[in-house]
Computed example of a mutant assay.
Amino acid sequence: MLELQNQDGNLAIAGQLLIRHLDSFKESLWEPLSSNSPVTVDVSQIKEVDLAGLQLLLAFLRSRKEVGGAFITGLSKAFDRALKLTGLEEHYAEFIA
């Protein structure tokens, strides 16, 4: 299960950021994409993440870079481990606050 809370440009993602949940996750990102203010994404409550989840979140962060910026906070153990295992650590480096 994946939960996403959006409060004034602060996104909190909890649960499983897995390919099977990406359709609903992608839809939830439309509102933050339309804002010109910086977005902070808290990933401290992510329990499971796969490559597809990391790729979609990275695409979101890169698109936000062009319209106000985005930052990641609170790397959970699962999220940090997935970054290292997939080799995406360096791609996320500029977004980690």
Rank of each mutant, 00 (worst) to 15 (best):
Y92F: 15
D50V: 10
L75D: 02
K84L: 14
D50A: 12
A14Q: 11
L56D: 06
K47Q: 15
L4P: 00
D23K: 11
A52Q: 06
T86I: 12
K26S: 15
E89C: 07
N36W: 02
E90K: 13
S24A: 15
G69F: 06
S63M: 10
L88I: 07
L88M: 15
E90V: 12
E66S: 08
L33N: 05
L2D: 07
G87L: 11
Q7R: 14
R20P: 00
D50L: 10
S24T: 12
E31V: 11
Q45Y: 03
F79V: 06
Q55K: 09
E94S: 14
F71C: 07
L54F: 05
F60V: 04
T40G: 01
L85S: 13
Q55T: 10
L2C: 06
S37N: 11
L75G: 01
L88K: 02
F25L: 14
F79M: 07
L17E: 09
Q16D: 15
V39A: 05
K26T: 13
L83Y: 05
E27R: 11
R64S: 07
G74R: 06
L85Q: 14
I96C: 10
K47N: 13
L61D: 04
S76R: 05
A52I: 02
G15P: 00
L75C: 09
Q5C: 02
S37W: 01
F79D: 04
T40V: 14
G53S: 06
R64D: 02
R20Q: 14
N6F: 13
P38M: 12
L11R: 04
L85T: 12
G68Y: 03
E48A: 13
I13N: 04
Y92L: 08
Y92S: 05
M1P: 01
L58T: 08
R62A: 10
E48G: 00
A97M: 04
R20N: 12
